[in-house]
């Protein structure tokens, strides 16, 4: 979506225009869902968090300065919601999301769906080994292609901290992966 086009939709979204709400939800829902699932969120909880995110966006749009990308601002709100959610139900951190519960991947037949779920399960198991802060940086960098500066803005910490968390995460992932390959 082009920035000008996005700005128009955002203005209409703020007024509750049905088409604009539909377009923005359609555009950003999948990215937010995958972000939350990879952060270990349960699918049902993810839906609640995404809804809360869009509601907060509608309420706070008048404060949005267009200095940062809308996508960055949206993810920042979503991340804050996720944090609040975990604070309210701290036990949820202990039960990471099980990708095998996902029924909606691009796989067309049951066999390929099983293979996809298997892959998801493997990667999620490795991601779950990382401390939440490192996992967050990895998910934002690799799956959502945010720059280091954008991640720093999003998680409200210096760019150097993001780099060090990313390095720590890569080292951790390397270890976990070698262990996993060694076990096979």
């Amino acid at each position: 979506m082009q920035p000008d086009e996005e700005r128009q939709y955002l203005q209409a979204f703020q007024k509750g225009d049905h088409r604009a709400v539909e377009i923005l939800v359609d555009e950003y829902y999948p990215a937010l869902l995958n972000f939350l699932l990879r952060m270990g969120c349960q699918p049902g909880d993810a839906e609640d968090i995404i809804q809360e995110t869009f509601i907060k966006v509608a309420r706070g749009l008048s404060r949005y300065q267009h200095k940062e990308r809308f996508r960055t601002w949206l993810f920042k709100i979503c991340h804050n919601n996720l944090r609040d959610y975990h604070k309210k139900a701290s036990r949820r951190w202990e039960v990471p999301h099980d990708p095998s519960t996902l029924v909606t991947t691009e796989a067309s037949c049951p066999e390929s769906l099983m293979i996809e779920q298997e892959k998801a399960l493997r990667v999620q198991a490795v991601l779950n080994q990382l401390p939440p802060k490192q996992r967050l940086v990895v998910v934002l960098r690799y799956y959502h292609e945010f720059s280091i500066n954008e991640i720093a803005h999003l998680v409200q910490c210096p760019a150097g901290t993001v780099k060090s968390r990313l390095n720590g995460a890569l080292n951790g992932l390397k270890d976990f992966m070698s262990k996993e390959i060694g076990n096979e």
Binding site: P43, P99, T104, K119, V126, Y142, L173
Partner: peptide, 15 residues
């Protein structure tokens, strides 16, 4: 190699 491994995680498609 790590990036390749991470990217093997398929995207979930919302209903």
């Amino acid at each position: 190699k790590i990036a390749k491994f991470l990217m093997s995680y398929p995207d979930a498609i919302p209903s």
